[in-house]
Design a binder for these strands. Structure first.
Length: 933
DNA sequence: GACATCACG
DNA sequence: GACGTACGTGATGTCC
């Protein structure tokens, strides 16, 4: 490139490169490359650098530019969103593997020593427009390197465009060819035609052709709208009259702003040669071998050596010791600003919220901590209370804190920005807290879920466990800060200096874990699991939990009273039968009465040396005596009352009148969710009396509850995985699967099937899923062990695929230490090679895990797709119960919802996995859950 | 806090 | 040949 004269003016030539267009073209043109050493996605950066290099090579000689800049978009919110909130609203979210590459493209531009410009809240197009206008006024030439038609309005008077891909120059004639009008009328045509890509509405039914025709006829848009009544075609005339405001708005949206306030001038954009050291340094860091070699030859410098990393012994991420960590309190907007700047520069931040409690529906935000690099984190105290005097607790806020609204406003753009990943440990908690304060946190990463995807089955995924295992550091315990028992305090009463050390460390730990996990995720080949089955579930579950389900207190309360009375009567009867008073709720006392006092047979003692009296034992004894049956009845009522009718009432949120469960995403080993506080996945249904509890789960007036559940999903998955043709056929034919199994096993024709034979076959079918044993089946069916073993042998004989599946799965687990679902989820089986009974447990768990886990993956996929599928419908997804989804739906929308939701559920395995067996979903509806199920 | 029991899929 | 045995969860009450 030639050297530039000083002062932009006549004879100067400015090149403006549309950076975002480069990035997206690079991203889509290249396969998803990753950096060898750590798995960082790097494809788009690589393509971007190649494009820059080709640009530099192509632009030497007499027509070389004197000034050049690459212009980027920044921030997702611009003045156009204020004009029209749906502007660019239908844009697809940025692909996850592109996001971390965005900051790197800025670095790449700077490494090439090309001016790199962006302005918060402005689109690149407006900056390009402003610079083009300035250059034109100064008498220079401008080439805009882009193929974006929105920029064509700038062409003319020394400004032209260059489509670098097609190597096509576009001047006034080119614009006329594209739009049918000159550059000065392009916005008028665009205003009429609209733009589906940017979601500019325009005039319905009018495209570029018609728009150009109209503009050419009437001169310009204002004249056209003014004289719209003169248009001959009635439909077109009416459209323009009806949508005049929308058309004017559209013009505002497409009109580029030549007056963007810039903090730099044209003279800052002078062409400069790259500094070989800087450029080589960047390319080497990115590990671009070919490009490094090529450019080093051009520059005449020696190519640095990029060492091929050995994957197995990749260097651990270097991190400062926790002893040297710097944790500071941020108490003002001025102190917060540099943190925000650094976050924007990186494109990521670890976030942690401190609150007054663990229940996200009621906890108040007390403070926020942020970490951007290991060892450096801050805590923003917001709602700590001043220390009280004497016995009285103060309700005053402590001094030295940032205002809550001020802090949230300052952080909102970061927390909601598409370009910044918010990293958290269990982000569902934090996103729910922020949502209650009006901040929608996205996109996210979650270290708990990353660990779950990589290490499921090896250990739990709490912060303490992860920090100790992967950082060798024990986090500051919360206990000493909050105390325990009656004297426990909430976090808002913790002194700010202590809170800062605790809270900032949590963010620091989270960031460190993320930096370690990110490359590991790729190495463990579970990135897809994490990105398609774990992370996207977070906002879905957060919504369900926040919405909650209405529970009718009166219904529960009435039932509770009825239970009390029945229990009291039973208790008297039991004491009478026993001849003494004792605690019926104490299994060991019941055992004492039955086995010592009454000398009934079958008394077994547990590991604590006390009698054990589980239901099946009492059931057997019920034939001998009246007492065991009464105890069983009493236990059932006691369970229903204490766990359901009483406890559920305590969980009704006083603000919403609804019950808000919490789903653990990383709780169950198999990929299932777990529901806690309260557990809404074990609401009674099997017994008639228990099922009535579900009558208390109701829909709001005008709504109904709709339940959709997968029919026999685990057996279908077994049929697929173990490749059992008979089972597959039976499912395809819609047969009764247990009856079919019975017929096959016992040589009984279907039409002669008895309920008892079918019941036995059903037990065997389930037994298979659980990793059957003769003993277990015998106990379940209460038949001799030899007979049970005979059944199993027969089953294996008829369906040999099952035996192979079990043997293969055990073998795989023994060799690899984990098993997998059809979708790639890993479930580790660390005890598979243990000796003693533990390996037996592990083997059966290994057989069950791929089946249960695949079913869990499928319903996760359905849940993740559901919000988009039912968008706009008056329907909410409320609960998941492993193979069932429960919705609350406006009555008149039920007939729309059911087929849509069913379609999502039945097709949830596609396209990742094609099942040989179709999935079938049954549906029910009603005013309450008992009716819907 | 461990254990036994029982609610669900 | 004996040993212990269906899979996955969470909540509650007793007992120490």
């Amino acid at each position: 490139m030639s050297s530039a004269p000083t002062g932009f003016g006549k004879g100067c030539h400015l090149h403006l490169i549309d950076g975002s267009a480069f990035i997206f073209r690079a991203y889509h043109a290249l396969p998803p490359l990753t950096r060898k050493s750590d798995g960082l996605p790097i494809g788009a950066v690589s393509g971007f650098c190649n494009m820059l290099q080709r640009y530099v090579e192509d632009n030497t000689g007499p027509d070389a530019p004197t000034h050049v800049a690459v212009i980027f978009d920044k921030g997702s919110h611009t003045f156009r969103n204020d004009l029209y909130d749906l502007y660019k609203a239908n844009r697809e979210a940025m692909p996850e593997d592109l996001r971390p590459q965005i900051p790197l493209t800025r670095q790449a531009t700077e490494a090439f020593n090309i001016a790199c410009k962006e302005m918060e809240g402005f689109e690149a197009d407006d900056i390009i427009a402003t610079l083009a206008c300035q250059a034109r006024e100064a008498g220079g030439r401008v080439t805009i390197i882009s193929s974006d038609k929105d920029l064509m309005q700038l062409v003319g008077d020394g400004v032209e465009m260059l489509d670098a891909m097609k190597n096509l120059r576009i001047g006034v004639d080119g614009v006329r060819e594209k739009f049918g009008v000159g550059p000065e009328r392009v916005v008028d045509v665009q205003a009429l035609a609209g733009d589906s890509v940017d979601n500019v509405p325009g005039a319905p039914g009018i495209g570029i052709k018609t728009a150009a025709l109209l503009i050419n006829e009437y001169g310009d848009l204002d004249a056209l709208l003014e004289r719209a009544g003169e248009i001959k075609q009635p439909k077109r005339r009416q459209t323009l009259i009806d949508h005049a405001d929308q058309i004017r708005l559209s013009r505002q949206l497409v009109q580029l702003d030549c007056k963007t306030p810039l903090d730099f001038g044209l003279d800052d954009l002078e062409v400069k040669d790259p500094d070989p050291e800087v450029l080589m340094g960047f390319l080497t860091e990115m590990e671009f071998r070919t490009l490094t070699r090529r450019i080093s030859e051009k520059l005449g410098v020696e190519a640095p050596v990029i060492e091929a990393p050995k994957a197995a012994e990749a260097e651990p991420v270097e991190m400062p010791s926790f002893d040297d960590a710097e944790y500071v309190a941020v108490t003002s907007a001025e102190e917060l600003a540099p943190w925000i700047a650094q976050i924007r520069e990186r494109g990521w931040v670890a976030v942690d919220t401190e609150t007054t409690g663990l229940n996200e529906m009621v906890a108040e935000l007390v403070g926020i901590s942020l970490a951007v690099e290991p060892g450096r984190a801050c805590y923003i105290p917001l709602q700590h209370r001043a220390e009280g005097e004497g016995l009285f607790e103060s309700t005053e806020l402590a001094e030295g804190q940032m205002g809550l609204d001020e802090a949230l406003d300052a952080l909102r753009d970061v927390l909601e920005s598409d370009a910044i990943v918010k990293i958290g440990q269990n982000m569902k908690y934090d996103t729910k807290i922020f949502a209650r304060y009006g901040v929608q946190v996205a996109p996210i990463d979650d270290t708990m879920l990353m660990s779950y995807a990589m290490h499921g089955g090896e250990h739990n995924h709490g912060m303490d466990t992860l920090s100790e295992r992967y950082l060798g550091h024990t986090p500051i315990p919360i206990k000493p800060l909050l105390g325990s028992g009656k004297s426990a305090i909430t976090f808002d009463r913790v002194p700010i200096d202590k809170a800062t050390q605790y809270a900032a460390e949590d963010a620091d730990i989270t960031l460190r874990l993320w930096q370690i996990f990110r490359p590991e995720l790729h190495k463990a080949r579970v990135t897809t699991v994490y990105e398609t089955l774990e992370r996207p579930l977070v906002p879905v579950l957060a919504q369900m939990e926040m919405h909650g389900i209405k529970v009718d207190r009166d219904t529960l309360s009435r039932m509770s009273n009825a239970f009390s009375q029945k229990m009291a009567a039973l208790e008297d009867e039991i004491h009478e039968l026993a001849g003494e008073k004792f605690n019926v709720g104490s299994p060991s006392q019941v055992g004492g009465i039955l086995f010592d006092k009454m000398s009934l047979p079958g008394g077994k003692k547990g590991k604590t040396g006390k009698y054990s009296t589980p239901a099946d034992v009492l059931e057997d004894l019920a034939t001998e005596h009246d007492l065991p049956g009464r105890v069983l009845d009493w236990r059932q009522l006691s369970k229903l009352k204490s766990t359901y009718t009483d406890a559920l009432q305590e969980h009704i949120n006083s603000d919403t009148g609804r019950v808000h469960t919490s789903y653990a995403i990383a709780g169950a080993n198999t990929g299932r969710l777990a529901s806690t506080e309260p557990n809404l996945q074990n609401i009674p249904v099997r017994s008639e009396e228990g099922r009535r509890i579900r009558e208390a789960f109701v829909a709001e007036p005008g709504n109904v509850l709709v339940s959709l559940d997968y029919s026999q999903i685990e057996l279908r998955i077994l049929a697929h995985i173990a490749k059992i043709p008979e089972l597959k056929q039976a499912f395809d034919d819609g047969l009764d699967i247990h009856a079919m199994t019975a017929s096959e096993m016992f040589d009984v024709p279907l039409e002669e099937m008895t309920p008892d034979i079918r019941r036995q076959a059903k037990a065997i079918n389930f037994g298979v899923i659980y990793g059957i044993s003769g003993f277990g089946l015998a106990r379940n069916l209460r038949i001799p062990r030899a007979e049970a073993q005979g059944f199993i042998d027969r089953y294996f004989e008829r369906f040999p695929g099952i035996k192979d599946y079990m043997a293969d799965t055990k073998g795989f687990a023994k060799e690899h230490g984990f098993v997998q679902t059809l979708f790639g989820r890993k479930i580790h089986t660390p005890e598979i090679n243990a000796k003693g009974p533990r390996s037996g447990f592990a083997q059966r768990a290994a057989i069950n895990a791929p089946i249960q886990g695949t079913a869990a993956d499928i319903i996760r996929r359905a849940m993740i797709r559901m919000p988009a599928a039912i968008e706009g419908m008056p329907a909410k997804m409320l609960l998941q119960v492993h193979d069932e989804l429960l919705f609350e739906v406006a009555e008149d929308a039920v007939d729309d919802l059911i087929p849509r939701a069913r379609e999502v559920m039945e097709g949830a395995a596609d396209p990742a996995v094609h099942l040989d067996v179709k999935l079938v979903v049954d549906a029910g509806k009603g005013a309450n859950w008992a009716e819907a199920h």
